[in-house]
């Protein structure tokens, strides 16, 4: 009995770590939705694109190599260098900022006063464009992410818990690193939003576009800022997921797991995204642990969506979302 309880705790701890990764992806959605009311369908692809760019830059891959070789009959594939991880991450973050500028210049600028559904459609277009563009730029094969991140089971935790409980917890060091990165990221975002001029401007735009303009806030500048931040958060998510399962095109599918997280946490709440991710991460692991013997496996595939469905019925605005009040 004690054995099983300890095992359940280990399962929830692992779920907690996975949940934090879900949160990181969901965070990108929340940022853009808060500031512009746009549900950015392309967020998942942005995670993938960021990870692809990171791997490509680090390995010194020539962007658009296939295209260049096909047109000019050359055979260039690599610059022949290997960038240090920090430099590659900084450069990738810069690429995400440039992407944000391009999105503002070529898409958002023309859709300023349009209905949300039109902006949503535009982001679907953007998603497919980015997917193709990413493949054209960096190639479609699965690539390992080679960053000096800690990997493998943490021996310290295993031996410490073994001494105390007579049962060693298996926790992946990468998961712990991911949790730390996520915590630092979220904390700095919250502080930035709360106490800086631009953070205030971001919140102001989220509340009222007209009023924001009247105090001298440029909406287009704010959009670039918020898409850049979402891109960089996407990069962080891409690094963690990429380190776990390699950088491949199925990476963009984790965005689908972010949807139930958003429904749980509310589309406009940063703490909601974090808590929602954790609830789903822990929930799906525990549910699988207890229900597997009764109803069979693979509950992880649908548990999150079922939970989201229940939330939609009883609390459609999510845990921290704003109440939807409509007067008749």
């Amino acid at each position: 009995m004690v054995e099983q309880l300890l095992y359940a705790i280990e399962v929830s701890l692992n779920g907690l770590m996975t949940g934090i990764l879900y949160s990181l992806v969901a965070l990108g959605f929340v940022l853009i939705f808060k500031a512009s009311g746009v549900f950015n369908y392309a967020q998942g692809i942005m995670v993938l694109f960021a990870a692809l760019t990171l791997v490509g830059l680090q390995a010194g891959q020539v962007p658009f190599a296939h295209l260049i070789n096909a047109v000019f009959g050359t055979r260039i594939y690599s610059f022949g260098w290997n960038l240090p991880a920090i430099a590659a991450i900084a450069l990738s973050a810069m690429v995400m900022v440039v992407l944000a500028m391009a999105v503002e210049k070529f898409i958002l600028k023309f859709l300023v006063h349009q209905e949300p559904v039109i902006l949503f459609m535009a982001t679907i277009g953007l998603a497919y464009f980015l997917e193709g563009f990413g493949e054209l730029m960096w190639g479609g094969e699965i690539k390992p992410l080679d960053l000096p991140l800690p990997v493998g089971i943490s021996d310290t935790i295993e031996s410490a818990t073994f001494e105390r409980f007579g049962y060693g917890f298996f926790i992946d060091k990468l998961d712990i690193a991911a949790a730390c990165v996520a915590a630092v990221l979220v904390l700095s975002l919250v502080l930035f939003f709360q106490y800086s001029k631009i953070g205030r401007a971001l919140r102001a735009v989220a509340d009222d576009h007209q009023a924001a303009l009247s105090v001298g806030i440029s909406l287009r500048y704010i959009w670039v800022v918020i898409w850049s931040i979402a891109g960089i958060v996407g990069l962080a998510a891409g690094i963690m997921w990429g380190a776990k399962s390699g950088v491949q095109f199925s990476l963009s599918l984790i965005a689908l797991k972010a949807l139930p997280v958003l429904m749980l946490g509310g589309f406009t709440s940063i703490p909601g995204a974090i808590l929602g991710g954790i609830i789903i991460g822990v929930g799906e692991k525990l549910f699988d642990f207890f229900m597997n013997p009764i109803i069979g496996g693979a509950t992880e595939n649908w548990f999150a969506y079922m939970l989201a469905l229940i939330f939609l019925v009883f609390r459609p605005q999510g845990l921290f979302g704003e109440r939807i009040i409509e007067r008749v």
Partner: peptide, 14 residues
């Protein structure tokens, strides 16, 4: 047209 979710102080700071 105020920033409804922000405090009085934050509105004035904005």
């Amino acid at each position: 047209a105020l920033f409804k979710r922000m405090t009085t102080l934050d509105n004035i700071m904005t």
